[in-house]
Simulated scan of single mutants.
Amino acid sequence: MYISFGKRVIAWLIDALVIQFILQVFLIGFLNFRSLYYDFLLSQRDWMDVNLEEIGGIFESGFFFKFAAVLGILLSWLYYAAMESSRLQATVGKLAIGGVVVGEMNERISFGKASGRFFGKIVSSLILYIGYLMVAFTEHRQGLHDKMAKAYVVDKEHLAAYRTTMQKQMEDVVKVG
């Protein structure tokens, strides 16, 4: 029922590619904006008192790399939290391996819980990635970030079968009662 460590690695690789693609689109847009902005300033400097060195400070490479890092974290957080708390209950990578993220009662997790799970990944990373390696050795295939958020990554088909069985059992209880 729980997704294995190997499959989760494959899902992570797919998600990393998706996030990189989205990040590159944003950064290319930013660079194009920067280029258009400089072109505009250069075209206006004859009649405007423009100090390109002062204005250009926000577009220096140091700023660009900080901007890219912050944007990468924000995009990653929104991607993981929004996808895992959506009706899909999974990111593109998890969908590709047939997995979904659920809470303790096999319910869809909230955006807040998905956010906690995402930021818990920072803790999983800081301790030499041991928080991720836990997936290979724990009973329910949970990483530290999963345990912190009280979440599980489970096989979508097994979950559907489990929910159908539980629904039938509930119907039987109602009929008897």
Rank of each mutant, 00 (worst) to 15 (best):
Met1Gln: 08
Met1Gly: 09
Tyr2Val: 02
Ser4Pro: 09
Ser4Leu: 10
Phe5Pro: 07
Phe5Met: 11
Ile10His: 01
Ala11Cys: 08
Trp12Cys: 05
Leu13Tyr: 12
Asp15Ala: 03
Ala16Glu: 01
Ala16Leu: 14
Ile19Leu: 12
Gln20Trp: 10
Phe21Arg: 08
Ile22Asp: 00
Phe26His: 02
Phe26Gly: 01
Phe26Cys: 08
Leu27Phe: 06
Ile28Ala: 12
Gly29Gln: 03
Asn32Lys: 12
Asn32Arg: 09
Phe33Cys: 05
Tyr37Leu: 09
Tyr37Arg: 00
Tyr38Asn: 02
Tyr38Ser: 05
Leu41His: 06
Gln44Leu: 09
Arg45Ile: 13
Arg45Ser: 13
Asp46Ser: 14
Trp47Glu: 02
Asp49Tyr: 11
Glu53Gln: 13
Glu54Lys: 14
Gly57Asn: 10
Phe59Ile: 02
Phe59Tyr: 10
Ser61Cys: 00
Ser61Lys: 12
Gly62Val: 08
Phe65Thr: 11
Phe67His: 04
Val70Met: 05
Val70Cys: 05
Leu71His: 02
Leu71Thr: 11
Gly72Tyr: 07
Ile73Val: 15
Ile73His: 03
Ser76Gly: 15
Trp77Phe: 08
Leu78Val: 13
Tyr79Lys: 01
Ala82Gly: 04
Glu84Met: 01
Ser85Asn: 07
Ser85Pro: 06
Ser86Met: 08
Arg87His: 09
Arg87Lys: 13
Leu88Pro: 01
Ala90Asp: 00
Gly93Met: 05
Gly93Cys: 08
Gly93Lys: 01
Lys94Asp: 01
Leu95Gln: 05
Leu95Thr: 05
Leu95His: 00
Ala96Met: 10
Ala96Arg: 03
Ile97Val: 14
Val100Tyr: 05
Val100Phe: 07
Val102Thr: 15
Gly103Tyr: 08
Glu104Phe: 06
Asn106Ser: 14
Asn106Asp: 15
Glu107Ser: 09
Ile109Gln: 03
Ser110Thr: 15
Ala114His: 02
Ala114Tyr: 05
Ser115Pro: 14
Ser115Asp: 08
Gly116Ala: 04
Arg117Glu: 03
Ile122Glu: 00
Ser125Glu: 04
Leu128His: 10
Tyr129Asn: 14
Ile130Glu: 10
Tyr132Val: 04
Tyr132Phe: 15
Tyr132Gly: 08
Leu133Gly: 04
Val135Asn: 07
Ala136Gln: 11
Phe137Arg: 07
Phe137Leu: 08
Glu139Asn: 14
Glu139Ile: 13
His140Trp: 02
His140Ser: 09
Arg141His: 12
Arg141Met: 04
Gln142Thr: 05
Gly143Tyr: 06
Leu144Ser: 07
Asp146Pro: 08
Lys147Leu: 15
Lys147Cys: 06
Met148Ile: 15
Met148Pro: 06
Ala149Asn: 09
Lys150Ala: 12
Lys150Glu: 07
Tyr152Met: 03
Tyr152Ser: 04
Tyr152Asp: 02
Lys156Thr: 09
Leu159Cys: 06
Leu159Tyr: 11
Leu159Lys: 09
Ala161Gln: 14
Met170Lys: 14
Met170Cys: 03
Glu171Thr: 10
Glu171Leu: 14
Asp172Leu: 14
Val174Glu: 13
Val174Gly: 00
Lys175Ser: 07
Lys175Phe: 08
Lys175Gly: 02
Val176His: 00
Gly177Thr: 11
